[in-house]
Design a protein around this nucleic acid. Structure first.
Length: 1024
RNA sequence: GGGCGGUUAGCUCAGCGGUAGAGCACUACGUUGACAUCGUAGGGGUCACUGGUUCGAUCCCAGUACCGCCCACCA
């Protein structure tokens, strides 16, 4: 006998272990079976199971268990992601506990430490997933840094490089000063932050003046004054030292007189201030600020564009920590040189009115200088925010701040409070600094073409469909993808540098900067291994070197790799190469996940069988990071299909909601509103959490999770458990596992068989359409409302009755139905269903195998018996109506009353006889008879066109009974009036579909009968 | 600024051209031999607003208001 409740904590681990031991999670590899593959979105190896995982993994597990039961050859491919920054961060924190920094170790020592950390405490999420019931094939677990996956990364990189789709470029990138690495656009979070805008005067060179005029819309002059400066508004004064120009709009009349002239940056020692030209560009908005913008190409993305267009030099003022550089030549020394350069620029300036520099050869005109030299000694080494304060103070002290009248009438510097969108690193949380550095980029635009086309032509589709718009929108505006990261943990870029062996001997120097990588005079060898790179290098050197030059190239570097070569077998020389120190963006390897996990680039059986995946299940927040990139890489490198083109990595992308707390807030540790899935599992069991997730996983954008919801679904489990207990107590079992619906004789049994079929049809259709909510909802409704509330109650008389045949049939059917329910719920609630499946076998049929490996029933129309369904509907209606009537009239719940059915057709009189026991029990009746007339002292209601008379006159308040009838008649009459009006409308009759018209006529007719009967009942009450 | 979405019962949300739904909450009654983590019954909605299309609109279309989210961004 079952206990009165299910104890998840005792059962879950045992059941999970059983499944594992039986190998339930590994694909059947049955060649006749249709393959079905889902790759898990790999959680970070540092990750712990949060609600997002719980939802994501539950949904996949539902699909995977469902498809396994449907007989498919299912692989759910699990694994974890090495998560570059996140993992490096964790290990650095560990080191900090020992009082060490990453840089106290060598790179190799550090990465060894990370591997060690991973072995000890990485991947806890896998164990946590097991508690949730995740049925992934753990024997095939992969890690993005595994040797095989790393080889895939290198192969992809090399090929993209060779095709020119990966390239190195010096561009302005997002720099995270905390982690001291470049990051991609997607890793930047723009947030509104309170800030200030300062207004400063840039004096014109040589004290020149001009007439400054402002006009209103009608052309009236509102301000006219003589100025010897141009006013500039900025939110970032600390970058002024790197200004290359001041730009105004070409049609801005206010500044027309001074375009092409020079102005002075009002910062730094007075005698050495730099002069910069005033240029025109479409970028400045005349209506914003002063209409004049300082152009600081190395520190602002907009300015960068302007500087490139106009040939303005860019000066990088900051170091990798975001502090003002301290590595420059003495400032005074630079100043003299700067003067000279200005003269050169002016030669190149086009005075004809275009207000731009020429660059006849299409080259940047002014010579680039190191921004380091432009930082005055006083600012060197200052953090960017300290530098800002100093610059503001110095300019103000100097009298170059724009002044306005303050509240007390005194003149004060003009500083506007302004909310500015500020970029933050999504991991570090520090303000991102645009930095001009050499980085590796992927030509995402090129790769995006096929990725876009595949969704546009339906090779892959999004569910819900409208996420494809988001996908398109991003791809259509895609920027180059910065893939290099200045970290130690990750896939090291498979590129080696050597000296350039041709051209000017002066350039034959590898300038190797720890942070920024080799920057000059290099020769690139991109190869999937160091030995291949050495071969390439050797080939190159042999080609370029002339024997008589060999001596010049013998390296004195001792720490780098060397190749010893013999040119013509005679003169030995050395040609050192050094690998790029950077690693790849984590998402680069994630992009390969759908095929790298299956063994690519080897032609494995797994790849052949399981690629492309059936569906990718993920949340919308990583459509750009991951989904789009998997599409790009899959369509470039994935196994080829019938058309000999690479196939999409998955056919469907199911995008689920984000899990929010009950108030609709995003869960986060810092807000303290995070719910821990493990804690919920401890308290309510994994099934309750899973079922909650499935029921909430509608098509919406977010789901609000509450403890109460989980509790409710735990209660559902208890309900199921007790239903099973009831079946067990009544010896309900289906001994042979079969059921022939045609052989059934009891209507209640015929009916429930059809309801089982309907429930499976509904849940199956819902899961096929990724409607987890509907699938779980249909199962829930069937189990609770149909099976427990009605079927089990209706069969009690049969189980307790004398008719042994009916009893035997009912036991069989109840047992069968319960077995089907366990199958129906298994994808959602694997533990409790498996436990019951096994427990019921103790005093029931032997099961042969675990529930998890049972097949999903396909119950055809043979199971549906419309006559039985109609009969049971009538029985249930009768019971419901009597119960409702009794309750409304205040008949004591315990009172058993006599009931008389009046004016019912013969079929219903027979039904009454057949279900006499059930009806009297459920409706709490003393007697239930069909008679030609209602007996004395009875009060009447109406069911299905017949009057139902209850002899309760002495139990109730007659006035209340009248009121109830009046209320119902009134409501009915209102409805009937509407129907009559509709049916009297010739347009309705003419234009509405026939079945709708017929339905309305029927409703009117039925309603009229009911009104008549109710009126009669009312009259009967009057007579009392 | 560009894009996407929302507004339906007290709450959370389904629905979708033809009688407004669920869960939770609420009210009343109830220990009927599986289950009080339960049962029975009940109350509760001008489906944001304004127009349009239609025989008929919560649903389709246009506009308005408010609320979200994503992307970009004015120095």
């Amino acid at each position: 006998m079952l206990d009165s409740r299910f104890d998840p904590s005792a059962a879950e681990a045992r059941l999970y272990k059983r499944w594992e031991e039986l190998g339930c999670f590994t694909p059947s590899m049955d060649t006749a079976a249709e393959p079905y593959c889902i790759v898990i979105p790999p959680p970070n190896v540092t990750g712990v199971l949060h609600m997002g995982h719980a939802l994501n993994h539950t949904l996949q597990d539902v699909l995977v268990r469902f498809e396994r039961m449907r007989g498919k050859n299912v692989l759910w491919q699990p694994g974890t992601d090495h998560a570059g920054i996140a993992t490096q961060m964790v290990v650095e924190r560990e080191l900090a506990k020992e009082g060490k920094k990453r840089t106290d170790l060598t790179r190799d020592e550090f990465t060894a430490k990370v591997w060690q950390w991973k072995a000890q405490s990485g991947g806890q999420i896998v164990e946590q997933d097991k508690r949730l019931g995740v049925s992934a094939d753990w024997s095939r677990e992969r890690f993005t840094m595994d040797e095989g996956l790393s080889a895939a990364v290198r192969k992809v990189f090399v090929q993209l490089y060779n095709e020119g789709l990966i390239y190195r470029d010096k561009r302005l990138v997002n720099w995270d000063p905390h982690f001291q690495t470049a990051i991609s656009d997607l890793e930047v979070e723009n947030r509104e932050t309170p800030g200030h805008m300062w207004h400063f005067k840039y004096p014109l060179a040589g004290g020149e003046t001009y007439e400054y005029m402002e006009k209103d819309e009608d052309g009236n002059v509102t301000l006219r004054e003589t100025r010897d400066y141009i006013s500039i508004a900025t939110t970032r004064p600390e970058t002024m030292l790197g200004d290359g120009a001041v730009a105004v709009h070409p049609e801005d009349a206010r500044y027309a007189p001074i375009v092409g002239k020079l102005c002075e940056i009002p910062v730094g020692p007075k005698e050495h201030r730099r002069l910069i030209p005033i240029i025109t560009d479409e970028y400045p908005d005349p209506d914003f600020g002063s209409g004049a913008v300082k152009i600081t190409g190395a520190h602002d993305f907009n300015d960068y564009q302007v500087a490139k267009r106009a040939g303005i030099p860019m000066y990088a003022l900051m170091d990798e920590r975001g502090a003002m550089r301290a590595d420059g030549a003495p400032y005074a020394q630079e100043a003299a040189a700067a003067k000279k350069r200005v003269d050169t620029w002016l030669d190149l300036f086009d005075p004809s009115g275009a207000g731009r520099f020429h660059s006849p050869a299409g080259e940047t005109a002014p010579e680039d200088v190191s921004g380091a030299n432009l930082v005055p000694d006083a600012y060197r080494g200052l953090d960017r925010f300290e530098a800002r304060a100093r610059v503001i103070a110095d300019i103000t002290a100097d009298g170059n701040a724009v002044m306005v009248e303050g509240e007390d009438g005194a003149m004060v510097p003009l500083v506007e409070d302004k909310v500015i969108m500020q970029p933050f690193g999504d991991r570090s949380g520090v303000v991102i600094e645009p930095m001009l550095t050499d980085q590796w980029f992927v030509n995402a635009e090129e790769l995006s073409k096929e990725a876009r086309a595949a969704v546009a032509d339906g090779r892959t589709d999004f569910v819900p469909e409208n996420w494809s718009k988001t996908y398109f929108n991003w791809l259509d505006n895609i920027e180059p993808w910065c893939i290099s990261r200045q970290l130690w943990w990750g896939h090291r870029i498979p590129v080696w540098y050597g000296r350039s062996l041709s051209g000017d001997p002066n350039t034959l120097v590898i300038t190797y900067n720890e942070q920024l990588g080799p920057v000059d005079g290099r020769q690139i060898f991109c190869a999937s291994s160091e030995s291949e790179a050495l071969e390439l290098a050797a080939e190159y050197a042999r080609k370029e070197l002339r024997l008589d030059e060999v001596d010049a190239f013998v390296s004195d570097e001792s720490t780098v790799n060397r190749i010893d070569m013999t040119n013509s077998g005679q003169v030995p020389f050395q040609y050192p190469i050094v690998q790029d120190p950077d690693v790849l963006d984590t998402w680069f390897s994630s992009a390969l996940w759908p095929f790298s996990t299956l063994g690519w680039p080897d032609k494995t059986k797994e790849l052949e069988t399981f690629y492309p995946g059936a569906v990718l299940v993920t949340a919308f927040d990583i459509i750009f990071f991951w989904v789009a990139r998997m599409m790009m890489m899959g369509l470039k490198f994935g196994p080829k299909g019938a058309d000999s083109k690479p196939m999409v990595p998955f056919k469907h992308v199911y995008i689920h909601a984000l899990v929010l707390d009950e108030k609709g807030q995003k869960m986060s540790k810092s807000k303290g509103n995070a719910m821990d899935p493990l804690e919920l599992i401890d308290e309510y069991g994994a099934d309750a959490l899973r079922f909650t997730m499935a029921r909430l996983a509608g098509m919406g954008r977010n789901i609000r999770l509450s403890r109460q919801a989980v509790e409710g679904n735990r209660n559902f489990g208890t309900k199921l458990w007790n239903a099973a207990r009831f079946c067990q107590m009544n010896e309900c079992a289906n001994w042979d596992g079969e059921l022939d619906p045609a052989a059934l004789t009891e209507p209640v049994n015929q009916w429930i068989a059809g309801e089982v079929a309907a429930a499976f049809a509904e849940t199956t259709a819902a899961l096929e359409a990724y409607r987890f909510d509907d699938g779980a909802g249909a199962a829930y409704k069937f189990v609770w409302n149909t099976f427990c509330d009605w079927y089990l109650e209706l069969i009690k008389p049969l189980l307790n009755g004398e008719d042994e045949e009916a009893k035997a049939e009912t036991r069989r059917v109840a047992g069968w139905t319960l077995d089907q329910i366990l199958k129906l719920l298994h994808p959602f609630m694997p533990f409790i269903t498996e436990e019951l499946w096994g427990a019921l076998a103790e005093h029931g049929p032997a099961r042969g195998d675990v529930l998890m490996r049972q097949s999903w029933p396909r119950l055809g129309s043979a199971y549906v018996n419309p006559a039985a369904a109609a009969e049971m509907d009538w029985v249930c209606d009768l019971i419901s109506e009597i119960r409702s009537f009794r309750a409304d009239l205040g008949v004591p719940a315990g009172a058993k009353v006599p009931m008389t059915l009046v004016g019912a057709p013969r079929a219903n009189r027979e039904r009454l006889t057949r279900h006499h026991a059930a009806i009297t029990a459920r409706a709490r009746l003393e007697t239930a008879r069909a008679e030609p007339a209602a007996p004395e002292g009875s009060v009447t209601t109406v069911v299905g066109g017949a009057s139902v008379a209850l002899r309760i006159a002495d139990l109730i308040d007659v006035a209340e009974a009248k009121a109830r009838l009046d209320k119902e008649v009134a409501g009915l009459n209102k409805e009937l009036a509407g129907l009559s009006k509709k049916l009297a409308n010739p347009n309705f009759i003419a234009k509405a579909p026939e079945d709708i018209v017929a339905e309305n006529r029927q409703r009117l007719a039925d309603g009229e009968v009911r009104v008549d009967k109710l009126a009669a009942a009312r009259a009967g009450l009057d007579a009392l």
